[in-house]
């Protein structure tokens, strides 16, 4: 196979990615408390401050109390930020700063395995912060329905989507500063346009149409009904959009990473 063909080849996955995923888990366990706090402190503060502050002014939104409304948004938001962060800063430390990947690919593990491990790991961390925020929401008395459990796999899929996007940035990054672009140009607009703080229908039609293309909006469209104990409408469409973004971004990240490291 020529180099170009190898560069563009579909991921060759083997179970050897597991020890790499496990390595990340073991590091996380050493710093678990700081890590969880870091991932959920922000969304929790937003949820409580805006939920109680604005919530006392406006009452119900979309058939639920404002704190539950924004809380559900925050669950998806934290999955998005956690996975993006992991795919960018943490992966960059391991790839570039600590050269951990270099050590791993000298063992019988391919760069494809490493990438799959990082991808699944980013999604794993997204599930952890999803779970932590869900626990708080439920402690506040909302979302007491079995359907809420489905928000955990949703967090995983959101983690796959944004973990892969983070890994695309990682493959291109000359230094940590580069990731600021992703926050400013992608994540912040995504956060504001996807219906985290207010329903998408409140926006001008043009922006609402744009929102239809944002993966976070589709995640929230799944999460809110689940929180109310309802099966989401258009579930298949939302899932397909998320998986489309996840798979597409991962493929791009893989090709770019191969190009960066295997030359």
């Amino acid at each position: 196979m020529t180099f170009t063909a190898k560069l563009w080849a579909l991921p060759l996955v083997s179970p050897r990615f597991l020890p790499v995923w496990r390595r990340n888990l073991l590091v996380w366990k050493k710093l678990a408390i700081a890590s969880v706090l870091g991932n959920i402190a922000d969304p929790l503060l937003y949820m409580l401050a805006l939920g109680y502050g604005i919530g006392s002014l406006i009452g119900e939104v979309g058939g639920m109390s404002y704190i539950a409304f924004i809380g559900t948004g925050m669950v998806c938001q934290s999955a998005m930020f956690t996975a993006s962060f992991e795919g960018m800063y943490s992966a960059f430390s391991r790839m570039h700063v600590q050269r951990t990947w270099e050590a791993i690919i000298n063992a019988p593990i391919s760069i494809d395995d490493v990438m799959v491990a990082e991808w699944i790991w980013a999604a794993t961390k997204a599930v952890m912060s999803t779970a932590a925020i869900l626990v708080v929401i439920m402690a506040l008395g909302y979302g007491h329905t079995w359907l809420v459990v489905w928000i955990l796999p949703l967090g995983f899929v959101v983690g796959l989507t944004f973990g892969a996007a983070g890994l695309v940035m990682n493959a291109l990054a000359p230094s940590y500063d580069f990731f600021t672009y992703f926050f400013t140009l992608v994540l912040t607009p995504m956060l504001l346009l996807s219906g985290v703080f207010f329903p998408v229908e409140q926006m001008p039609p043009v922006l609402a149409a744009v929102a239809e293309f944002l993966p976070l909006k589709h995640a929230i469209d799944i999460a809110r009904p689940l929180m109310l104990g309802r099966v989401p409408s258009d579930l298949l469409l939302h899932v397909i959009v998320l998986i489309f973004y996840a798979a597409g971004a991962f493929y791009v990240a893989l090709v770019l990473t191969r190009r960066r490291l295997l030359k």
């Binding site: 050897r16 020890p19 790499v20 496990r22 390595r23 073991l26 590091v27 050493k30 710093l31 600590q98 050269r99 951990t100 270099e102 050590a103 791993i104 000298n106 063992a107 019988p108 593990i109």
Partner: peptide, 24 residues
């Protein structure tokens, strides 16, 4: 390798153990 790439988050023993894991 030419440049050190030990895992800075682990102890000496853990570095060996985790690397052994990469070989299955």
């Amino acid at each position: 390798p030419q440049m050190d790439n030990l895992d800075p988050d682990f102890t000496v023993t853990e570095n060996l153990r985790i690397y052994g894991g990469y070989f299955g």
